[in-house]
């Protein structure tokens, strides 16, 4: 079976007053029906990856190189009508701020029905029936009434549900979720996470879920890819990443989550700040902050070490560990 999504040595640069190398040689494979979390901090390139997938970057100021294939189709070659059909049809997106992503002047039901009508070419009545069905599936109470609500009349959690209904109305094969629960309260966040997990099983779609919160990643993912400075530095199943992190950065992130930190004791903080991405990395981007850095880490790009099927880590130490065994 072909992979749902394949990224092959993707590079994204932004050209403004200075050049920003946002994504550097990123390769990734997502199987059908898989839930992958892209985990990273601000500036790690996780949101840029999603926008690149939807071809949402401003063409005048950005340059994309490499390969993106979704279900075998070359996405970078799409244009015009084909691109429109791809966006919102095969792939759709859920944003962090539903208040900004939903159109404030249209009723919820009309927005969803309109999207369905445009993409599927069904009748008005059918589209409205689909919209109502979607609102029901995302567990919005009294969906008939909510159909005629404007976005601002819904609470934050309900708005995010409506956003999900809109994104899933055309039954995409791939859903991109950009920090969809970050703006929500804890008790609402867990509801949305559970809902997404359920809908993913139900619809059998692949999901790329971007977050900076490891706790959220553990709750929702099948697999985790950790990003740093525009690269995936470690990838594996959720178990492997949480139980046996190999990259020093992943280890540091897990420690910084404070889940089992002893109160008051000094934290093992990762020192320093992430690098400015004004040049394409020629060595390990994490080495300036890494407690185990060796001269080799600063001399050359780290090797991509395969630790098992679909389990990779970009670290010189991991290679030495394997050699030692």
């Amino acid at each position: 079976m072909t992979a749902l999504l394949e990224l092959d040595r993707l590079n994204v640069t932004f050209h403004g007053e200075q050049t920003i190398h946002a994504i550097n040689d990123l390769s990734l494979r997502l199987e059908q029906g898989e839930m992958l979390v892209l985990l990273g901090e601000s500036g790690s390139g996780k949101s840029v990856t999603l926008k690149t997938l939807l071809r949402l970057l401003p063409p005048a100021r950005s340059r994309v190189q490499g390969g993106i294939t979704v279900n075998g189709a070359d996405i970078l070659a799409l244009s015009g009508r084909k691109l429109q059909e791809y966006r919102g049809g095969e792939v759709s997106m859920v944003f962090q701020e539903p208040a900004l992503a939903l159109d404030p002047v249209y009723r919820i039901g009309d927005q969803i029905a309109e999207a369905v009508r445009r993409k599927k070419g069904v009748s008005r009545a059918e589209a409205r029936a689909t919209a109502l069905d979607m609102l029901r599936r995302v567990r919005i109470p009294s969906p008939e009434r909510r159909m005629s609500n404007f976005p601002h009349e819904l609470s934050g959690g309900m708005r995010q549900r409506a956003m999900i209904a809109l994104a899933l109305a055309c039954r995409p094969r791939l859903l991109l979720a950009d920090e969809p629960t970050t703006a929500l309260d804890a008790t609402v966040q867990i509801q949305i996470l559970l809902l997404l997990r359920e809908l993913q099983k139900e619809f059998g779609m692949g999901v790329i879920f971007v977050t900076h919160d490891i706790g959220v990643a553990v709750e929702i993912s099948d697999r985790i890819a950790v990003m740093y400075a525009g690269q995936i530095i470690e990838e594996g199943s959720t178990h492997e990443i949480i139980r046996d992190p190999r990259h020093p950065y992943t280890q540091g992130l897990l420690a910084a989550n404070l889940h089992d930190a002893a109160p008051g004791e000094r934290l093992e903080a990762i020192p320093g700040v992430p690098p400015a991405l004004d040049a394409k990395p020629v060595a390990c981007s994490f080495s300036p902050r890494c407690p185990h850095a060796q001269p080799g880490c600063r001399a050359d790009l780290p090797p991509v070490v395969s630790l098992g099927p679909r389990r990779h880590v970009s670290c010189l130490l991991a290679q030495q560990d394997i050699a030692a065994q």
Binding site: V188, I190, L194, D213, I214, G215, V218, E219
Partner: peptide, 22 residues
């Protein structure tokens, strides 16, 4: 509602439904 940090003991049911009231 806190994430469990344990992939084997994920939350299965939301502890509360709906948003905090106004």
């Amino acid at each position: 509602a806190m994430p469990s940090m344990d992939p084997d003991r994920r939350t299965l049911v939301p502890p509360l439904s709906g948003d905090p009231p106004n």
